[in-house]
Amino acid sequence: MSAATEGGANADAPLAAQRSHDAACDDPGSLAAWLRLALTEGVGAGNGRRLLAAFGLPGAVFQAPRQVLEALAGPRLAAALRQPSSAALRASVEAALDWARQPGHAIATLADTHYPQALLTIPDPPLLLYVDGNPALLQAEALAVVGSRNATAQGLAHAERFSEELSRAGLAIVSGLALGIDAAAHTGGLRGPGSTVAVIGTGIDIAYPSRNRALAQRIVEDGCIVSEYPLGMPPLAANFPRRNRLISGLARAVLVIEAAAQSGSLITARMAAEQGRDVFAIPGSIHSPLAKGCHQLIRQGAKLVETTQDVLEEMPRFARRAALPAQVFPGAADESEMRADDDAATSIVIQAMGHDPLGADLLASRCGLDAARLAELLLGLELEGRIEVLPGARYRRLG
């Protein structure tokens, strides 16, 4: 073969590869076509849905007459859709396809039966989702649990315990894999059969925040991580408020635990209300800045929540499953040991009580005590001035 002939063959190789790629992307229902549409600059979820409503499937969009595309999406986007794929776009599509071929990975498009049905009811569902873990969890009945990244110890305990008990009742716990309340919610959700779903604001191949890397791995193994953003997408500030619509959209209701007056959790709660989801909030001290957001939501009509039963009452099918075992705090001894050591028993009660008011039933479940034994200890603590009794038979720790 002559040098000229060899050079000509090599020169044609990139063009042949491009033609092969575009032919695959023009296949109306192929995943490559979905990826090409979603990754074309300027498309976005809104334009993408309008185009799909007009032409049916992505491959048909790329074959549509330019004049029709211009009428729907404007001349600039029409030109981008009609011209051959750039090298960068082809590389992004191929990288996503390679990622989806790996075990445990999936890409769900709006046309797939395994696309989350709950998201089809929201105003702005993404064209596709990158899924790492168990995709069946995206169809499960779910509760979103959100709150402050800078949560108090009490808030973290609430998030973990509520999420564990609700997961044991069969609800999947959805949150955003952020530090604070999100991480505690995922941790609790993993302890029950409902498990947990993390909706992230980066590409699904990006570990963010890095402090939650080990937690993310546990979620991949026993739960599910999902993102609408392409591979490699860094943690851009604008992406996180937008992903909140998916946290609320995947869930039947949203529970807010500790939120400042201006916080991302309130954005999630607002989106939940707009999507027709219920909103729950746990109250806190009137002196705590992290309670102000929850109090604001309650004033606006969110249901005040003190126990997991308050949530389950709004979900009767799950309330019937919720004959839960007592949640025993670490270090709690059995009753015979407690009777032998009242100091140890009262210490456990104080530890379990925290600083927020709570009822005797919830306190008993935390401590693993029966009602009679707990009443005896509470009376002693009240007489010592270490707790106070509030209206509604609730107790609060003093000091």
Rank of each mutant, 00 (worst) to 15 (best):
M1R: 13
M1H: 09
L15Q: 04
A16V: 13
R19D: 07
R19M: 11
C25P: 04
C25L: 07
C25S: 05
G44P: 03
R50Q: 13
L51R: 09
L51D: 05
L77G: 12
A78N: 03
Q83Y: 10
L89H: 03
R90G: 02
A91H: 08
E94N: 07
D98G: 12
R101D: 14
Q102N: 04
A106W: 09
I107Q: 02
I107G: 01
D112L: 05
Y115G: 03
P116C: 03
L128P: 07
L128Q: 11
N134A: 13
A136F: 06
A142D: 02
V146W: 00
S148H: 00
R149E: 00
N150Q: 12
N150Y: 00
E160G: 07
E160L: 13
R161L: 13
E165T: 09
L166D: 02
L166G: 02
G170P: 00
I173Y: 01
I181L: 05
T187A: 09
G194A: 07
G201C: 11
D205L: 09
N212R: 03
R213Q: 12
I219K: 02
I219G: 01
E221T: 13
C224V: 03
I225F: 01
S227I: 04
S227N: 11
E228K: 03
P230A: 06
P230K: 05
P235F: 06
S248Q: 11
R252M: 14
L255D: 00
A259H: 00
A260C: 11
S263H: 04
A269P: 09
F280E: 02
H287G: 04
I298V: 08
G301Y: 14
K303Q: 12
V305D: 05
P316Y: 03
R321N: 15
R321E: 10
A323C: 15
L324W: 05
Q327D: 11
P330G: 06
A332E: 10
D334Q: 12
D341C: 03
A352P: 08
P357R: 03
L358R: 14
A360W: 08
D361I: 14
D361K: 08
D361T: 15
R366I: 04
C367K: 09
L369A: 13
A371Q: 13
L379V: 15
L381W: 04
E384R: 15
E388N: 07
V389P: 06
P391D: 11
G392I: 13
A393Q: 13
L398E: 06
